[in-house]
Protein backbone atom coordinates (compact mmCIF):
# COMPACT_ATOMS: atom_id res chain seq x y z
CA UNK A 1 0.00 0.00 0.00
CA UNK A 2 1.44 3.35 -0.97
CA UNK A 3 1.75 6.21 1.45
CA UNK A 4 -0.99 8.07 -0.30
CA UNK A 5 -3.43 5.19 -0.12
CA UNK A 6 -2.62 4.77 3.52
CA UNK A 7 -3.31 8.39 4.19
CA UNK A 8 -6.60 8.20 2.30
CA UNK A 9 -7.64 5.17 4.35
CA UNK A 10 -6.79 6.99 7.56
CA UNK A 11 -8.90 9.95 6.45
CA UNK A 12 -11.76 7.62 5.62
CA UNK A 13 -11.52 5.94 9.03
CA UNK A 14 -11.55 9.32 10.75
CA UNK A 15 -14.65 10.43 8.87
CA UNK A 16 -16.48 7.19 9.60
CA UNK A 17 -15.78 7.76 13.29
CA UNK A 18 -16.90 11.37 13.07
CA UNK A 19 -20.19 10.37 11.48
CA UNK A 20 -20.80 7.59 14.01
CA UNK A 21 -20.09 9.91 16.94
CA UNK A 22 -22.35 12.66 15.60
CA UNK A 23 -25.23 10.32 14.83
CA UNK A 24 -24.87 8.58 18.19
CA UNK A 25 -24.93 11.90 20.04
CA UNK A 26 -27.81 13.44 18.14
CA UNK A 27 -30.07 10.56 17.20
CA UNK A 28 -32.09 10.24 20.45
CA UNK A 29 -32.90 13.93 20.42
CA UNK A 30 -33.71 13.79 16.74
CA UNK A 31 -35.99 10.83 17.34
CA UNK A 32 -37.74 12.64 20.19
CA UNK A 33 -38.41 15.55 17.86
CA UNK A 34 -39.89 13.46 15.05
CA UNK A 35 -41.96 11.53 17.57
CA UNK A 36 -43.30 14.73 19.08
CA UNK A 37 -44.73 15.73 15.68
CA UNK A 38 -46.67 12.50 15.29
CA UNK A 39 -50.22 12.26 16.46
CA UNK A 40 -52.74 9.55 17.04
CA UNK A 41 -51.66 6.08 16.04
CA UNK A 42 -48.87 7.32 13.79
CA UNK A 43 -46.76 7.37 16.90
CA UNK A 44 -46.71 3.60 17.02
CA UNK A 45 -45.19 3.34 13.56
CA UNK A 46 -41.41 3.21 13.77
CA UNK A 47 -40.02 5.63 11.20
CA UNK A 48 -36.48 6.84 10.73
CA UNK A 49 -37.42 9.99 8.86
CA UNK A 50 -39.92 12.69 9.72
CA UNK A 51 -43.36 11.75 8.40
CA UNK A 52 -45.89 13.85 10.28
CA UNK A 53 -45.92 17.48 11.27
CA UNK A 54 -48.76 17.64 13.71
CA UNK A 55 -48.63 20.16 16.53
CA UNK A 56 -51.29 18.31 18.50
CA UNK A 57 -48.85 17.10 21.15
CA UNK A 58 -47.45 20.57 21.67
CA UNK A 59 -50.91 22.00 21.83
CA UNK A 60 -51.90 19.36 24.34
CA UNK A 61 -48.95 20.05 26.58
CA UNK A 62 -48.98 23.82 26.41
CA UNK A 63 -52.66 24.60 26.36
CA UNK A 64 -53.93 22.03 28.80
CA UNK A 65 -52.82 21.00 32.21
CA UNK A 66 -50.19 22.62 34.32
CA UNK A 67 -47.14 22.30 32.14
CA UNK A 68 -46.80 26.05 31.39
CA UNK A 69 -46.94 26.62 35.11
CA UNK A 70 -44.21 24.03 35.59
CA UNK A 71 -42.02 25.79 33.06
CA UNK A 72 -42.58 29.07 34.88
CA UNK A 73 -41.61 27.39 38.17
CA UNK A 74 -38.43 26.04 36.68
CA UNK A 75 -37.51 29.45 35.28
CA UNK A 76 -38.11 31.15 38.62
CA UNK A 77 -36.11 28.57 40.55
CA UNK A 78 -33.23 28.45 38.09
CA UNK A 79 -32.88 32.23 37.82
CA UNK A 80 -33.07 32.69 41.57
CA UNK A 81 -30.44 30.01 42.06
CA UNK A 82 -28.11 31.60 39.50
CA UNK A 83 -28.44 35.11 40.94
CA UNK A 84 -28.09 33.99 44.53
CA UNK A 85 -25.14 31.70 44.00
CA UNK A 86 -23.28 34.22 41.83
CA UNK A 87 -23.83 36.95 44.38
CA UNK A 88 -22.59 34.82 47.25
CA UNK A 89 -19.77 33.35 45.18
CA UNK A 90 -18.28 36.54 43.75
CA UNK A 91 -17.54 38.05 47.13
CA UNK A 92 -16.42 34.73 48.58
CA UNK A 93 -14.18 34.10 45.58
CA UNK A 94 -12.48 37.46 46.09
CA UNK A 95 -11.70 36.56 49.68
CA UNK A 96 -10.45 33.11 48.70
CA UNK A 97 -8.44 34.24 45.71
CA UNK A 98 -7.02 37.54 46.86
CA UNK A 99 -6.70 37.66 50.62
CA UNK A 100 -4.14 35.70 52.60
CA UNK A 101 -5.80 34.63 55.83
CA UNK A 102 -5.63 31.76 58.25
CA UNK A 103 -7.77 28.79 57.33
CA UNK A 104 -8.05 29.57 53.64
CA UNK A 105 -6.76 26.17 52.57
CA UNK A 106 -9.13 24.29 54.84
CA UNK A 107 -12.04 26.37 53.65
CA UNK A 108 -11.25 25.68 49.99
CA UNK A 109 -10.95 21.99 50.71
CA UNK A 110 -14.27 21.96 52.54
CA UNK A 111 -16.01 23.71 49.68
CA UNK A 112 -14.60 21.17 47.27
CA UNK A 113 -15.78 18.33 49.49
CA UNK A 114 -19.29 19.72 49.64
CA UNK A 115 -19.44 19.73 45.86
CA UNK A 116 -18.86 15.99 45.98
CA UNK A 117 -21.61 15.30 48.52
CA UNK A 118 -24.11 12.68 47.46
CA UNK A 119 -27.37 14.58 47.59
CA UNK A 120 -29.20 11.68 49.18
CA UNK A 121 -26.99 12.08 52.26
CA UNK A 122 -28.58 15.42 53.06
CA UNK A 123 -32.06 14.56 51.81
CA UNK A 124 -33.50 13.45 55.15
CA UNK A 125 -32.03 16.39 57.06
CA UNK A 126 -33.06 18.88 54.40
CA UNK A 127 -36.55 17.45 54.22
CA UNK A 128 -36.92 17.84 57.97
CA UNK A 129 -35.66 21.42 57.72
CA UNK A 130 -37.91 22.28 54.79
CA UNK A 131 -40.92 20.96 56.68
CA UNK A 132 -39.85 22.70 59.86
CA UNK A 133 -39.56 26.04 58.07
CA UNK A 134 -42.93 25.54 56.43
CA UNK A 135 -41.36 25.53 52.98
CA UNK A 136 -42.84 22.22 51.84
CA UNK A 137 -44.50 22.70 48.44
CA UNK A 138 -42.77 26.05 48.22
CA UNK A 139 -40.26 26.91 45.49
CA UNK A 140 -38.06 28.57 48.11
CA UNK A 141 -37.19 25.12 49.42
CA UNK A 142 -35.69 24.23 46.04
CA UNK A 143 -33.82 27.53 45.69
CA UNK A 144 -32.26 26.93 49.07
CA UNK A 145 -31.51 23.26 48.50
CA UNK A 146 -29.90 23.83 45.10
CA UNK A 147 -27.23 25.94 46.76
CA UNK A 148 -25.60 22.72 47.88
CA UNK A 149 -24.39 21.94 44.37
CA UNK A 150 -24.32 25.34 42.63
CA UNK A 151 -22.55 27.33 45.33
CA UNK A 152 -19.39 25.22 45.78
CA UNK A 153 -19.00 24.98 42.03
CA UNK A 154 -19.42 28.71 41.35
CA UNK A 155 -17.13 29.63 44.22
CA UNK A 156 -14.50 27.24 42.93
CA UNK A 157 -14.56 28.39 39.32
CA UNK A 158 -14.73 32.09 40.16
CA UNK A 159 -11.85 31.68 42.61
CA UNK A 160 -9.63 30.15 39.95
CA UNK A 161 -10.66 32.90 37.55
CA UNK A 162 -10.07 35.71 40.01
CA UNK A 163 -6.69 34.34 40.95
CA UNK A 164 -5.62 35.01 37.37
CA UNK A 165 -6.66 38.66 37.29
CA UNK A 166 -3.60 40.95 37.36
CA UNK A 167 -2.59 41.86 40.89
CA UNK A 168 -1.44 45.32 39.83
CA UNK A 169 -4.98 46.22 38.87
CA UNK A 170 -6.12 45.59 42.40
CA UNK A 171 -3.17 47.50 43.80
CA UNK A 172 -3.89 50.45 41.54
CA UNK A 173 -7.42 50.45 42.92
CA UNK A 174 -6.11 50.24 46.49
CA UNK A 175 -3.84 53.22 45.90
CA UNK A 176 -6.85 55.00 44.40
CA UNK A 177 -8.57 54.40 47.72
CA UNK A 178 -10.97 51.62 46.74
CA UNK A 179 -12.33 49.47 49.57
CA UNK A 180 -12.59 45.69 49.04
CA UNK A 181 -16.25 45.83 48.01
CA UNK A 182 -15.48 48.59 45.55
CA UNK A 183 -12.61 46.55 44.13
CA UNK A 184 -14.98 43.65 43.57
CA UNK A 185 -17.93 45.48 42.13
CA UNK A 186 -16.28 48.38 40.32
CA UNK A 187 -13.00 46.91 39.15
CA UNK A 188 -13.21 43.11 39.02
CA UNK A 189 -16.86 42.47 38.16
CA UNK A 190 -16.71 44.26 34.81
CA UNK A 191 -13.73 42.09 33.89
CA UNK A 192 -15.39 38.90 34.99
CA UNK A 193 -18.31 38.75 32.60
CA UNK A 194 -16.99 35.73 30.74
CA UNK A 195 -16.57 33.77 33.96
CA UNK A 196 -19.88 34.96 35.34
CA UNK A 197 -21.71 33.99 32.17
CA UNK A 198 -20.09 30.56 32.15
CA UNK A 199 -20.67 29.71 35.78
CA UNK A 200 -24.13 31.24 35.70
CA UNK A 201 -25.03 29.12 32.71
CA UNK A 202 -23.71 25.95 34.30
CA UNK A 203 -25.58 26.70 37.51
CA UNK A 204 -28.72 27.39 35.48
CA UNK A 205 -28.47 24.06 33.67
CA UNK A 206 -27.84 22.20 36.93
CA UNK A 207 -30.85 23.82 38.60
CA UNK A 208 -33.05 23.35 35.55
CA UNK A 209 -32.25 19.64 35.40
CA UNK A 210 -32.42 18.79 39.11
CA UNK A 211 -34.82 16.01 40.02
CA UNK A 212 -34.33 14.43 43.45
CA UNK A 213 -34.99 17.50 45.61
CA UNK A 214 -37.74 18.72 43.30
CA UNK A 215 -39.44 15.34 43.56
CA UNK A 216 -39.16 15.26 47.34
CA UNK A 217 -39.87 18.80 48.49
CA UNK A 218 -42.80 19.51 46.22
CA UNK A 219 -45.80 17.24 45.95
CA UNK A 220 -48.34 19.57 44.52
CA UNK A 221 -48.78 19.73 40.75
CA UNK A 222 -48.87 23.50 40.58
CA UNK A 223 -45.47 23.94 42.26
CA UNK A 224 -43.63 21.22 40.38
CA UNK A 225 -40.65 21.93 38.21
CA UNK A 226 -40.25 20.65 34.70
CA UNK A 227 -38.22 17.45 35.25
CA UNK A 228 -40.65 16.13 37.84
CA UNK A 229 -43.61 17.13 35.71
CA UNK A 230 -42.23 15.20 32.75
CA UNK A 231 -41.35 12.19 34.86
CA UNK A 232 -44.87 12.08 36.28
CA UNK A 233 -46.74 12.95 33.09
CA UNK A 234 -49.38 10.27 32.77
CA UNK A 235 -52.20 9.44 30.46
CA UNK A 236 -55.81 8.67 30.97
CA UNK A 237 -55.08 5.25 32.35
CA UNK A 238 -52.15 3.77 34.18
CA UNK A 239 -51.14 1.58 31.26
CA UNK A 240 -51.31 4.20 28.62
CA UNK A 241 -48.12 6.23 28.62
CA UNK A 242 -48.66 9.45 26.65
CA UNK A 243 -45.47 9.23 24.61
CA UNK A 244 -46.42 12.02 22.23
CA UNK A 245 -46.96 14.70 24.88
CA UNK A 246 -43.94 13.48 26.83
CA UNK A 247 -41.73 13.89 23.78
CA UNK A 248 -43.26 17.30 23.05
CA UNK A 249 -42.63 18.43 26.62
CA UNK A 250 -39.10 17.06 26.46
CA UNK A 251 -38.37 18.98 23.29
CA UNK A 252 -39.83 22.17 24.75
CA UNK A 253 -37.61 22.11 27.83
CA UNK A 254 -34.53 20.93 25.99
CA UNK A 255 -34.46 23.20 22.94
CA UNK A 256 -33.64 26.36 24.93
CA UNK A 257 -30.84 24.51 26.70
CA UNK A 258 -29.44 23.17 23.46
CA UNK A 259 -29.50 26.63 21.92
CA UNK A 260 -27.73 28.10 24.95
CA UNK A 261 -25.16 25.36 24.84
CA UNK A 262 -24.50 25.89 21.16
CA UNK A 263 -24.11 29.65 21.61
CA UNK A 264 -21.86 29.39 24.63
CA UNK A 265 -20.13 26.19 23.57
CA UNK A 266 -16.59 27.45 24.15
CA UNK A 267 -17.42 29.11 27.44
CA UNK A 268 -19.08 25.98 28.77
CA UNK A 269 -16.19 23.75 27.86
CA UNK A 270 -13.83 26.24 29.49
CA UNK A 271 -16.00 26.36 32.60
CA UNK A 272 -16.29 22.60 32.87
CA UNK A 273 -12.57 22.15 32.56
CA UNK A 274 -11.83 25.01 34.96
CA UNK A 275 -14.02 23.30 37.50
CA UNK A 276 -12.40 19.95 37.02
CA UNK A 277 -8.98 19.90 35.43
CA UNK A 278 -7.70 23.07 37.00
CA UNK A 279 -9.56 22.46 40.21
Amino acid sequence: MSGRQKKLLQQLGLWVLIVIISVYALFPFYYAIITSFKSGSAIFQVTYWPTDFSLANYWGVLAQGRFPRNIFNSIVVSFAVVVLSLLLAVTAAYALARVRFQGRGILLFTILSVSMFPQIAVLAGLFEMVRGLGLYNNLLSLILAYMIFTLPFTVWVLTTFMRDLPIELEEAAIVDGAKPHQIIFQVFMPLMWPALVTTGLLAFIAAWNEFLFALTFVSNDAQRTVPVAIALLSGATEQEIPWGPIMAASVIVTVPLVILVLIFQRRIVAGLTAGAVKG
Partner: peptide
Protein backbone atom coordinates in the same frame (compact mmCIF):
# COMPACT_ATOMS: atom_id res chain seq x y z
CA UNK B 1 2.78 50.49 37.76
CA UNK B 2 4.99 48.60 35.37
CA UNK B 3 2.01 47.12 33.53
CA UNK B 4 0.19 50.48 33.73
CA UNK B 5 -2.70 48.69 35.51
CA UNK B 6 -5.32 50.78 33.77
CA UNK B 7 -8.90 49.73 34.44
CA UNK B 8 -9.71 48.07 31.11
Amino acid sequence: FQSYALYP
